[in-house]
């Protein structure tokens, strides 16, 4: 039982990170019908940005309260990563809008390769260690037997994710910016007829997705204590799987999918085999695409007109 609770805690933590990344996939897909394959690498890039910022703030500028340093890192990493995503959309995707369907997709794959190589060249091909922070844990259960540990990091990850998702949900559902985004998602032409600047709204969608990915990048870096230029690929594809499982285009679906993928991965490696955990998650991708192409919370293609 304790073992199961432990896996549950680990799974929810990992799932939160996947959920944050998955939102970027699902929103961009919703609004322009394109899978942004560079999104995983934007996430990786943000982890590096966060690490550099953290080192700069704590070791060069000597900002001591860790909470303050982390908060500044969070805000700056979100801003810088958003700027990257904005530039990527502007340079690599927007000129190809209106071109054949595969063009932006190919461009996205190219952008993905570019980003991981850029980080490899500028930051080196080795694992980058992250300074040890937030190492405290709570332990529960029988001290003689198996104890459940809940680390400060895990609490931070779940709390930050919950707060950001709530804020994000508010923006999309209740503000005129979010309304314009949903309008573009449902009928871009009509949105323009009502005065929505469609290009700006699409840019904004990339920026919002990247900001959430930046949060995920920061949390990922703190949680694993190491970052690598290739870290965008596997988490990126898993977050994409989460978006597909939840129903691509659906925001609650992305979060639910993220949590499920996190749980499946952790439970699989906890009870079966650590080596095959990626096989387990990607089997979910295949199974979803074959048997439930619109996902758990997605809608079927046909809409009443």
């Amino acid at each position: 039982m304790e073992y199961f609770v432990q896996q549950l805690i680990n799974g929810i933590t990992l799932g939160s990170i996947y959920g944050l990344i998955a939102i970027g996939y699902t929103m961009v897909f919703g609004i322009i019908g394109m899978v942004n394959f560079a999104h995983g690498d934007v996430f990786m890039l943000s982890a590096f940005i966060a690490l550099i910022l953290l080192l700069a703030l704590t070791q060069m500028l000597g900002i001591t309260p860790l909470a303050l340093a982390l908060f500044i890192v969070l805000i700056l990493a979100m801003l810088l990563t958003s700027l990257w995503a904005w530039a990527i959309e502007r340079l690599a995707y927007r000129p190809l809008r209106g071109s054949f369907r595969l063009a932006p997709l190919i461009s996205a794959i190219g952008m993905s390769i570019f980003l991981s190589n850029l980080v490899q060249v500028t930051q080196g091909p080795r694992n980058k260690p992250v300074p040890e922070i937030l190492n405290g844990v709570f332990t529960f259960g029988d001290p003689e037997g198996y104890t459940v540990t809940l680390s400060y990091k895990q609490i931070l990850i779940v709390a930050v994710t919950a707060v950001l998702l709530a804020a994000f949900w508010y923006v999309v559902q209740r503000t005129s910016i979010g309304r314009a985004q949903r309008a573009c998602e449902q009928d871009r032409k009509m949105a323009a007829l009502l005065g929505v600047n469609v290009n700006r709204t699409i840019s904004l969608t990339f920026v919002m997705g990247a900001a959430l990915a930046a949060v995920a990048g920061l949390l990922f870096m703190i949680y694993y204590g190491v970052v690598h230029f290739n870290d965008g690929f596997v988490p990126g594809v898993k977050a994409f799987t989460a978006a597909v499982l939840g129903g691509i285009g659906s925001l609650p679906g992305a979060v639910l999918g993220g949590l499920l993928i996190g749980l499946i991965e952790v439970l699989w490696s906890g009870y079966f085999s650590n080596d095959y955990k990626d096989v387990a998650t990607f089997s979910i991708l295949v199974i979803t695409l074959v048997f439930l192409p619109s996902g758990l919370l997605g809608r079927p293609e046909v809409e009443k007109v």
Binding site: S176, R179, A180, A183, Q186, M190, A191, L194, V196, E303
Partner: peptide, 15 residues
């Protein structure tokens, strides 16, 4: 906009 409420549709009009 089929997945928006009537009120939201009108809000879009008021943009």
């Amino acid at each position: 906009f089929p997945r928006m409420t009537v009120r939201e549709n009108l809000q879009m009009g008021a943009l």
